[in-house]
Each structure stands twice: as structure tokens, then as C-alpha cells.
Amino acid sequence: MHQDRRRDRRPVRHVRPATVQHQAAATEGTEVVLVGYFSGKQKDFAALMDTAAQQATKHGVRVVGRIVQRRGVSDGGAKKMAFPYSSRTLLSYGKVREVAALCEQTDADAALFLSTLTERQRRVLTGMLGCPAVSLADVVAVG
């Protein structure tokens, strides 16, 4: 007889170990687009972006563009303010397209996120943006 295929019997996908490739993506002389994700309650996001740009510049990275994603500005977003738009990309799909267009327009070498990225987010964003996605914490740790 036919037996149903059960999810728990599928072979386990092996996850590749974390690579150091993302750290090399934002070294000295690299041009990056700075991407910030902020809650709607955070009013000083421009100052935080300026501080992040100064930190990146101090480590030899040149900021060629900036993009801000704000959450909770509208009524619907206020209830979900503590959560990212997407666990895969951190940003909304439209904002990811906007970052990709800016990276292409400025010929940036990488997208530098203020938030810490998981390996999955880094991998997905790198594929969607067409350039490496790195976290500011990675750049500061290397420098």
C-alpha cells in the first residue's frame, strides 16, 4: 500500500559552517551602503546613522549611501515594533530592492548593516543584493 511521506523522515540538510568570507567583504578601502533598521519610537536614528558612518570611516570603509528602514511609524506597524519585517532579510521586501538598487547605482562593494545579522540573513541578503551583506560589528571586530 501507499505510505504517506512524513516530514520527519527526510534526510537532514547539513548546514555549512560559518565562514570568514563576510569579514573580508568590508576591509579598508571598501565602499559600502549603510543600512539601518530602527523602531518608530527611536527619534535619534539620524544621529545613530552618523555615528555608525564615523565608526566605519575610522576602520577605513567609505560610506557611499545610506538607507533607513523604520518600523512602527504607521498604526499597523506600531503593534509589531519590536519584530523585524522579515526573519529572512530583517527588512521589508521593498526596502531590500531599494538597497539593491542603491548598491548597484553607487557600485558599492558591500551593504553594511547596523544590526547584527545571522548567517541565514547574511546569505539571503547577499543573494538578493548582489553584493556581500555584512554587519557593522564584523567590521569593528576585524579592524
Rank of each mutant, 00 (worst) to 15 (best):
R16N: 09
G29M: 06
M81V: 12
P11D: 03
V15F: 07
M128S: 15
H14F: 09
V142H: 05
K80E: 00
R5Q: 07
V12P: 12
L112G: 02
D107C: 12
R5V: 11
R7N: 04
R7S: 06
L112Y: 09
R5G: 02
D4I: 15
S92Q: 06
A18F: 03
L136A: 06
K58C: 07
G29C: 10
Q42F: 08
G94N: 11
Y93T: 14
A111M: 07
G127I: 02
A141N: 11
V32P: 04
R120P: 05
G94K: 07
L48I: 02
D138H: 06
A101S: 14
I67D: 01
Q55G: 10
P132V: 08
V96C: 09
A26E: 03
Y85P: 14
R6Q: 05
E28A: 15
V15R: 04
G77C: 08
G36V: 03
K58Q: 14
Q105C: 06
G94I: 01
E31D: 13
V139F: 05
Q121L: 06
R16C: 07
A46H: 12
V32C: 09
P84F: 03
T57R: 10
A137V: 14
G127H: 06
D75G: 14
L90S: 07
A78Q: 05
E104D: 10
G40Q: 01
E119F: 08
E104T: 15
F45I: 00
K80L: 03
K79T: 05
V35D: 00
Q105T: 15
V142K: 03
V20W: 01
S92M: 01
L48Q: 13
R88T: 10
F45L: 02
T57D: 13
D75K: 15
F38Q: 00
E104L: 11
T118G: 15
G143N: 10
R13A: 10
R88K: 11
L114M: 14
M49D: 01
D8Q: 14
D107V: 14
R5N: 04
F113I: 03
V15K: 04
K58S: 14
G29H: 04
K43Y: 00
L114V: 13
E98Q: 14
T118H: 08
A47K: 15
L34E: 01
L48N: 11
R13P: 08
T51C: 06
A53T: 01
L112A: 04
H14P: 07
I67K: 07
G130W: 01
K41V: 04
A52I: 01
R13V: 11
V15H: 07
T51E: 12
A108N: 05
D138N: 12
A110W: 04
P17Q: 09
D4T: 12
A108S: 13
F113S: 00
D44M: 11
G65M: 08
V32T: 06
G130T: 09
D4W: 15
K95T: 14
E119S: 09
